[in-house]
Simulated assay, not measured.
Amino acid sequence: MKYSVLGPSGIRVSQICLGSATFGVAPTSQEADEVVGAALDLGVTFFDTANVYGSAPTFDRPGHPPAAQRESAEEILGRALEGRRDEVVLATKSGERRVGAGAGLSRRHIIGQVEQSLRRLRTDHIDVYYGHFPDPHTPLEQTLAVYDDLIRQGKTRYAALSNHPAWQMTEALWIADDRRLVSTPVAAQVQYSLLHRGPEAELVPACSRFGISIVPFAPLHGGLLADLSVLEREISGDQRYGGAGFSAQEIAVARALDGLAREWGLEMQQVSLAWLLSRPAVASMIVGAETAEEMRANASAAEVELSAEQLEAVSALTENRPA
């Protein structure tokens, strides 16, 4: 495993981060323990979750208990990390609605959610605390002020933003500097992959300029950039969340990528993840895994170094696609 410094935080995180969005569904609670254990054994030190993961209706699947009857991902992850909490950098989020709870990034909602997250995670502090989505009803000044309070109280260590556009990330830096806050965002979490390069237009240059780390989620684009066998599944890609699934253009890119990987003697997911790790400002990538075997396969990408020619060949597959 290789490690990177997360923005201006000074902390080192593994370049592969284990995400827990579907913990409790796939993998199940028991399987999640095995996945987390495998990740720790592989040197993964960065774990990502959120107050709504696992227990949100979005992740309902046939044959599994409905959201209200499931353990949350935070509960599952907190239990799996028990006894090894000090070995990892733990990130969670607030801002989205839980069953019976409010949503948003106001002082009221954040304070209420951080206490619940601490309880579910079985910890006294959260290392990286993200604002999950922009809140159009709450001034960013208020959000950063409460993050500042939480850091000074020792309940969180660093602030970060997820799914925020470049202009809001820049505004957050201005506010933190102007008000001398310790809640300067250290990372930007965003969907980013070979098939989703929109962040390269503004967010990547902004984060590169100001020393903020980018932590991509969905780096394998629903599994399409990992293994073409995903196309054989009855439900694939964003169809899990009511979307349209993979487009013909996306499938064509994936087939071309698979051809390059075979030519180079590598696995498809290794090429996809190694390419993304080479992009400016990217410090770590959030990967999901349903089994320990998938965890090991994804983690192996951190050891792969593509040549300049190989990186150029991968980039060329989607360089002219609209953002």
Results as ranks from 00 to 15, higher is better:
Ser4Cys: 09
Val5Trp: 10
Val5Thr: 15
Leu6His: 04
Leu6Tyr: 06
Leu6Lys: 05
Ser9Glu: 10
Gln15Ala: 09
Ile16Ala: 06
Leu18Ala: 06
Gly24Asp: 12
Val35Ala: 13
Gly37Lys: 13
Leu42Cys: 13
Gly43Asn: 11
Gly43Val: 03
Asp48Met: 07
Asp48Phe: 05
Val52Met: 05
Asp60Phe: 09
His64Arg: 15
Ala68Leu: 06
Ala73Cys: 04
Leu77Arg: 00
Leu77Cys: 07
Glu82Lys: 12
Arg84Ser: 14
Arg85Leu: 06
Asp86Ala: 15
Asp86Met: 01
Val88Gln: 08
Ala91Tyr: 13
Lys93Glu: 04
Gly100Ile: 15
Ala101His: 11
Gly102Gln: 04
Ala103Trp: 12
Ala103Cys: 06
Leu105Ser: 11
Ser106Thr: 08
Ile110Tyr: 06
Ile111Pro: 00
Val114Ile: 15
Val114Glu: 00
Glu115Trp: 01
Ser117Asn: 11
Arg120Met: 06
Arg120Thr: 01
Thr123Ser: 11
Thr123Ala: 05
Gly131Gln: 03
Gly131Asn: 04
Gly131Cys: 11
Phe133Glu: 09
Pro134Asn: 12
Thr138Asn: 08
Pro139Trp: 11
Leu140Gly: 01
Leu140Tyr: 02
Thr143Phe: 05
Asp148Cys: 04
Asp149Pro: 09
Asp149Ser: 06
Asp149Trp: 08
Arg152Cys: 01
Gln153Ile: 00
Gly154Met: 10
Lys155Thr: 13
Ala159Pro: 01
Ala160Gln: 04
Leu161Lys: 06
Trp167Asn: 07
Thr170Trp: 02
Ala172Val: 07
Ala176Arg: 00
Asp177Gly: 07
Asp178Gly: 00
Arg179Phe: 02
Arg180Thr: 03
Leu181His: 05
Ser183Asp: 02
Pro185Tyr: 04
Ala188Val: 02
Tyr192His: 08
Leu195Gln: 07
Arg197Lys: 01
Gly198Phe: 02
Val204Leu: 14
Cys207Leu: 12
Ser208Gln: 15
Pro216Trp: 14
Pro219Ala: 09
Leu224Phe: 04
Asp227Ala: 10
Asp227Ile: 07
Leu231Glu: 14
Glu234Lys: 09
Gln239Met: 13
Gly242Thr: 10
Gly243Ala: 10
Ser247Met: 02
Ser247Arg: 00
Ala248Lys: 06
Glu250Asp: 11
Glu250Asn: 10
Arg255Tyr: 08
Asp258Glu: 13
Leu260Val: 02
Arg262Asn: 12
Met268Gly: 03
Val271Gly: 08
Ala274Cys: 09
Leu277Lys: 15
Ser278His: 13
Arg279Cys: 01
Ala281Trp: 02
Ala283His: 10
Ser284Ile: 09
Gly288Val: 14
Glu290Leu: 05
Ala292Arg: 13
Glu293Arg: 15
Glu294Trp: 10
Ala302Asn: 13
Val304Asp: 04
Glu305Cys: 04
Leu306Lys: 12
Ser307Val: 03
Gln310His: 14
Glu312Gln: 15
Thr318Asn: 11
